[in-house]
Design a protein around this nucleic acid. Structure first.
Length: 431
RNA sequence: GUGGCCGUAGCUCAGUUGGUCAGAGCGCCGGGUUGUGAUCCCGGAGGCCGCGGGUUCGAACCCCGUCGGUCACCCCA
């Protein structure tokens, strides 16, 4: 009995990742782990939900994410929890709780939840990869973190993306800048779009990032943060840019770059795909958050990190035609037309000897079994028909590449395949 | 959350101002004379046309609602 009112589909804004698409996810993860671990970052797991205060205090009450996008709920014990809307605050909370030695360099892969109107590239449950580096205030660390993101994207084959960077100053220079910006905008209050006219005092920075023409024009001559940094912030930012230049990491300065979380200080950056038509083209972003550890109850500890969205990276890869799905690969596929017992035992033997092997079930026709063998990407098909069964042999037929079909004794099957594979560079089975 | 567009077999889609229109390609399954896939040929299974109401003699095609997708805004990964 089917029940159409019970829609058998994932909730709005969520999605399943089936094979073989999932192989891309695995590849993405493996590549990321390889790159950041070579830079000294260690994999870190934190809970998928936290006390809601971790996000309220960390990301900021005024942010859209906290204000209207959190999956907040009360558990049976009356605790108010929230599914993590991003990765940094939980990581910093874990740091404050455990106080690992500095510098603490960690990476994560996690789902993130935000209640937004779904769109292509924007999901209510999406997945992020990221790193956090706590301890040093050294601008060279900024360069390292940004460079890791840039290098990772390039290693996937992506090239059509733009890195934008800005500095948002610190407690020393930000108040003065905000004052200047506010008074500048106040003078042009009537030119701003409705929304930002109302929010001018609450969050003047937002107007800089507005896409409407009205705000665009009104803010064209607005003072840029980069020109109003204090001495320390200015020197820091200069060193970051020099480092990126030295490492050949291309970027553009963007004084309109305003990130949505309250915890950012000094360096902020965003990677946007130029291959994606959609407005949802941000594939990664991050920045320094020198005050966040304190906000979450820890000792003054600078930090910087980035997060990137797996779904959007994949969309960008599709748009650029890179990092495609690897075809399935199997060492052997057993075709058995004698009832299946040979297939049963042969696959077990092959697997026990480190080879990958599969077979058909339900006693299908030889033609059907061969089609499955072909689809499996198997290098060899092991055929067991009446003749082989009677003589205790197996016919070994290469499905891909050169070679003739040969008949070998059952006892020699594993050895024959292993030695054949040893002749092919890079295809030797795991010991 | 606001506004626009869309929702037909597993996938991509065609369906004439509502009346044999429930279809195609791909995929899947089976067969092509008794042991060999990816090509080719033949055949087959699968949709109450997202769901629920309404209008009508009659709706996949019209109206309302709802769910989902998508685009822009918002915001971000």
């Amino acid at each position: 009995m089917s029940d159409k009112s019970l829609a058998a589909r994932a909730p709005s804004g969520t999605h399943d990742v089936l094979w073989p698409e999932s192989t891309r996810w695995e590849g993405l993860l493996a590549r990321f782990a390889d790159q950041v671990e070579r830079a000294g970052y260690g994999m870190t797991h934190t809970p998928i939900f936290e006390d809601v205060k971790v996000f309220r205090r960390g990301i900021g009450e005024g942010s859209d994410v906290v204000g209207k996008e959190m999956y907040e709920f009360e558990d049976r014990g009356g605790r108010t929890l929230a599914l993590r809307p991003e990765g940094t605050a939980p990581m910093v909370r874990a740091f404050v709780q455990h106080r690992p030695p500095l510098p603490w360099k960690a990476w994560y892969a996690t789902p993130a939840f935000r209640y937004e109107r779904p769109q292509a590239g924007r999901y209510r449950q999406h997945h992020q990869l990221g790193v956090e580096a706590l301890g040093p205030s050294d601008p060279d660390l900024d360069v390292e973190v940004i460079g890791l993101a840039d290098g990772y994207f390039r290693s996937l084959g992506l090239s059509q993306f733009t890195l934008r960077i800005n500095s948002m100053g610190d407690d020393t220079c930000r108040p003065a800048y905000l004052e200047q910006l506010t008074s500048y905008l106040a003078g042009r209050r009537s030119e701003l779009c409705d929304e930002h006219r109302d929010r001018l005092e609450a969050n003047p920075l937002r107007a800089l990032d507005c896409k409407r023409d009205a705000c665009r024009q009104a803010t064209d001559g607005a003072p840029g943060f980069a020109d109003h940094l204090c001495e320390d912030c200015s020197a820091h930012f200069a060193r970051v840019r020099a480092g990126l230049d030295a490492q050949g990491v291309p970027y553009v300065l963007d004084h309109r770059l305003v990130r949505g979380f309250d915890y950012y200080t000094r360096t902020t950056f965003e990677f946007g795909s130029d291959a994606l038509e959609s407005a949802q083209n941000g594939i990664g972003g991050g920045g320094r958050y020198d005050g966040l550890v304190e906000m979450l109850g820890g000792p003054p500890t600078p930090g910087i990190g980035f997060g990137m969205g797996i779904e959007r990276i994949l969309l960008a890869c599709d748009a650029e035609g890179v990092f495609g799905i690897d075809p399935p690969v199997l060492d052997a596929f057993v075709v058995d037309t004698t009832g299946g017992t040979s297939a049963r035992d042969l696959t077990a033997t092959l697997r026990a000897n480190g080879l990958s092997a599969d077979r058909a079930f339900d006693d299908r026709s030889m033609k059907a079994q061969f089609k499955l063998a072909d689809r499996s990407g198997a290098r060899w098909v092991l055929i067991v028909g009446p003749d082989e069964a009677a003589s205790g042999t197996v016919s070994l037929r290469p499905l891909r590449g050169a070679g003739d079909q040969q008949t070998v004794a059952v006892a020699d099957v594993v050895g024959t395949i292993q030695s054949a594979m040893a002749d092919i560079p890079g295809e030797a089975p795991a010991p």
